[in-house]
C-alpha cells in the first residue's frame, strides 16, 4: 500500500465507507416514500447511487491510493456509460 497511510487508518476508512454505504442505502429507500416528482425522484436515486459508487471505487477499490493515471484510464468507460444513460434519459423525456 503506497499510500503513506497506516493499516489502522486504512482499516478505519473501510469501516467508515461501510457505514456511509449503509446510511446511503437507507436514504435511497427512504426518499422513494416521498414524491418529489417523477424526474426529481430519478435524479435523487442516480445521485445517491453515484455517491455510493464513488466511495466503493475510491476506497474499497484503492483508486485513492493507486497511481493517478489509473483514474483517467477507468474514467473513460465511466464517461461513456454516463453519456449513454444521460442521452437516452433526456431523449425519453
Amino acid at each position: 500500500m503506497a499510500s503513506g497511510m497506516s493499516f489502522q487508518e486504512i482499516q478505519k476508512s473501510y469501516f467508515k465507507v461501510f457505514i456511509a454505504l449503509l446510511i446511503l442505502t437507507a436514504l435511497t429507500v427512504a426518499v422513494t416514500t416521498i414524491h418529489f416528482g417523477d424526474v426529481a425522484n430519478i435524479v435523487i436515486g442516480v445521485v445517491i447511487a453515484l455517491a455510493k459508487a464513488g466511495l466503493v471505487a475510491y476506497i474499497f477499490m484503492h483508486l485513492k491510493f493507486d497511481n493517478k493515471r489509473l483514474r483517467y484510464f477507468v474514467g473513460i468507460p465511466i464517461f461513456f456509460f454516463v453519456t449513454l444513460v444521460m442521452t437516452l434519459t433526456v431523449l425519453g423525456l
Binding site: 484510464f73 468507460p77 465511466i78 456509460f81 449513454l84 444513460v85 437516452l88 425519453g92
Partner: peptide, 16 residues
C-alpha cells in the same frame, strides 16, 4: 472497463 461497457448495454436497453 470492458465489464462497464457490457452492463452499459443493458442499462441502455432498459431506459429505451
Amino acid at each position: 472497463a470492458s465489464e462497464i461497457m457490457f452492463f452499459s448495454g443493458f442499462f441502455g436497453a432498459f431506459i429505451v
